[in-house]
């Protein structure tokens, strides 16, 4: 099993690179033949990645969330998986290269530095923690994808406004579709973050004697959740649309990243395991 894990660990960045390359090639040159081939490539990559994560869980007897680099691999998977679902649901296939690049970077770093973690603190073997972390990561993947669509929206918006009718104009879907993708991925991210926070609030006080509701990481995540919640409510129930929503989601993403960096590096928290 260990040899298989090591082999797949090497293969995964190659698979991500191939999928990214096919999506990029199709974006640049728009070959009809590649339209389905790229989706198959992505599906195979996801399948291999899922097998890899399961193999690690079985071999090391804990979910692959015990080191930064295991987490990076899950981030790569969840971003890619979320995009795959979005592509299947909307059948918009032209934006994959922008999303897959993020997965490729995360998986490459993970594959280069991940180690064999047989011995980990007992708390990291907990299944609820696994669920909590995976939901949080999928939630953050959702808002990352939302931000990518936000950036694409702003780029296309500026291109059309300034009469630049190049590759971006030709290949990207319409502004309304990008806005919709931006909104839906933010909603999915928000729902998963809600699940992660709920599990955390139920389980963390029991698992950690030094638990505090004023923990910086908890407060940071809650603020991110509130920012997105506010944006989603305004968009769903009031007259927020177009550029305003997209800018808000980008601001929300920047806030989420700053909050993550700050709480992981600057603040002292019980919520840090690595």
């Amino acid at each position: 099993m260990l040899n298989t894990i090591i082999t797949i660990n090497i293969l995964l960045p190659i698979f991500y690179l191939c999928s990214f390359a096919v999506y990029l090639y199709d974006f640049l040159w728009e070959k009809k033949l590649l339209s389905n081939a790229k989706r198959i490539a992505l599906f195979l990559t996801l399948l291999l990645h899922l097998f890899y994560l399961l193999a690690r869980t079985i071999e090391y007897d804990h979910p692959p969330i015990t080191s930064k680099f295991e987490i990076f691999s899950i981030i790569a998977f969840s971003i890619c998986f979320s995009y795959f679902l979005l592509e299947l649901l909307t059948d918009i296939r032209g934006t994959g290269s922008f999303i897959l690049l993020i997965s490729l970077i995360f998986q490459l770093i993970s594959s280069l530095f991940v180690t064999n973690n047989y011995v980990v603190p007992e708390v990291l073997r907990n299944r609820l923690l696994g669920l909590h972390v995976i939901n949080a990561l999928l939630g953050y993947s959702g808002i990352t994808i939302s931000a990518v669509y936000g950036l694409l929206y702003m780029t296309l918006y500026k291109n059309i406004k300034s009469n630049k009718f190049g590759l971006i104009f030709d290949r990207l879907p319409s502004l309304e579709i990008l806005e919709r993708l931006n909104y839906f991925s933010a909603v999915i991210g928000f729902i998963l973050l809600t699940v992660a926070i709920t599990i955390g609030i139920i389980w963390l006080p029991a698992a950690f004697p030094n638990f505090s509701y004023m923990d910086p990481k908890l407060v940071g995540t809650l603020l991110v959740w509130l920012v997105y919640g506010y944006g989603i409510i305004r968009k769903t129930f009031t007259d927020w649309y177009g550029k305003k929503v997209v800018i808000f989601s980008l601001v929300g993403f920047v806030f989420a990243i700053v909050s993550l960096i700050a709480t992981n590096t600057l603040a002292k928290t019980f919520h840090s395991f690595y």
Binding site: L156, I160, F169, L172, P173, S174, L175, E176, I177
Partner: peptide, 9 residues
């Protein structure tokens, strides 16, 4: 064509 790049439906 430009209109179609702005509005979806």
């Amino acid at each position: 064509q430009v209109v179609e790049k702005i509005f979806a439906n």
